[in-house]
């Protein structure tokens, strides 16, 4: 009796060490996952602490005031929030139809060889640093906007305030255009993946029922890939909201709200990049940190809305099915 027990014990400890490999892996990966949350919270905490002088002084007025005056130490975030949302909206307005259209062509219509080559180029475009886009914008897009596109828009819609004022080629619209160029590689690439993931049977069934290629794409494939496409749009939006260098080079950096799309404006990321290094006063730097907090909240809010939209659309889809 004693001998077998003595034999069993060491084998047991061999078979079951203190921590198994699986548990070790679980602990490690949990640590990495938890790190993401810790970093995010630390970030918010820092922004919260750093902005406390400005929060105490201005309160909610910070979000509604459009005064930005470092001389009198009065700060308001409204022109920056407006500029950030407007340029991102303009960017998506241009890049979503363009990006989704291109993705449909690449996944449904183009030959596999062409599709792969073009996709490779598109992904290359996504890897270009933003300051390069800014340089291209300043030397090519700005003169193009100033000399051709903006005068043409003014001729066509001159009576509306949306296109009023002098056309200098620098402003909300130009910033929106360069953001569109920067976001659409994301939209094309992710939308194409989503469209490619639609099962072949879906297309074949539609075609077998007598649908044309276009009808099958528009009525079957596209709704099937809706979630992925929506995801690509929000990925693009996230890039547009936080983009700094390219925007600051072409938006004109004017902390005021203008109705005209041709007028200069400002975004949150751009003002932080421009002014933080020289913000010597305590209130000044704290107001810039609070702008960072506002941008963070804005991104969270938009991501929340995106999640909600995804949940709602999937429910609707499954109810139909």
């Amino acid at each position: 009796m004693a001998t077998p027990a003595a034999v069993v014990r060491p084998t047991r400890t061999l078979r079951k060490p203190l921590i198994s490999g699986d548990e070790l892996a679980k602990a490690f990966t949990f640590f990495f996952a938890a790190l993401i949350i810790v970093v995010t919270f630390a970030l918010v905490w820092q922004l919260w602490i750093g902005s406390s002088p400005a929060k105490e002084k201005f309160g909610f007025r910070f979000l509604t005031s459009s005064l930005w005056n470092p001389v009198t130490d009065e700060y308001g975030a409204l022109p920056f929030i407006y500029g950030t949302l407007l340029t991102s909206f303009l960017a998506l307005l241009i890049s979503v139809p363009l990006g989704v259209g291109a993705a449909i062509y690449l996944s449904e219509l183009a030959s596999p060889r062409l599709s792969n080559t073009l996709t490779f180029l598109v992904e290359l475009l996504a890897a270009v640093p933003s300051v390069i886009f800014g340089l291209i914008a300043i030397f090519s897009l700005v003169p193009l906007m100033r000399d051709y596109i903006e005068p043409a828009l003014q001729n066509a819609f001159g009576s509306t305030p949306l296109f009023s004022g002098p056309a200098f080629g620098v402003g909300y619209l130009t910033a929106g255009m360069i953001l569109a160029v920067m976001t659409f590689p994301f939209i094309i690439s992710v939308s194409r993946e989503a469209l490619m993931a639609v099962p072949r049977e879906q297309r074949e069934a539609a075609l077998a029922l007598g649908a044309t290629k276009w009808e099958s794409t528009w009525q079957i494939v596209l709704p099937f890939a809706k979630l992925g496409i929506l995801g690509s749009v929000f990925l693009g939006l996230a890039r547009a909201l936080g983009e700094t260098m390219a925007v600051t080079m072409v938006i004109g950096n004017d902390p005021a709200i203008h109705a005209s799309l041709l007028a200069p404006g400002y975004t949150i990321a751009a003002v932080i990049a421009n002014e933080f290094t020289e913000a010597s006063g305590k209130m000044y730097s704290s107001a810039l940190v609070e702008l960072g907090l506002v941008l963070f909240a804005l991104t969270m809010l938009i991501n929340g809305v995106a999640q909600l939209m995804i949940v709602l659309t999937t429910k609707k889809g499954s109810a139909k099915a």
């Binding site: 001389v71 009198t72 004109g252 950096n253």
Partner: peptide
């Protein structure tokens, strides 16, 4: 407006650095 290294400009568009302003004026 007053005098400071950063003021609330009544008009105009901003560019970063002496080279930014010089570049903008040169090409506009």
């Amino acid at each position: 407006v007053g005098a400071n290294s950063m003021v609330s400009w009544p008009t105009g568009l901003g560019q970063k650095g002496n080279d930014g302003v010089a570049g903008m004026v040169k090409q506009s």
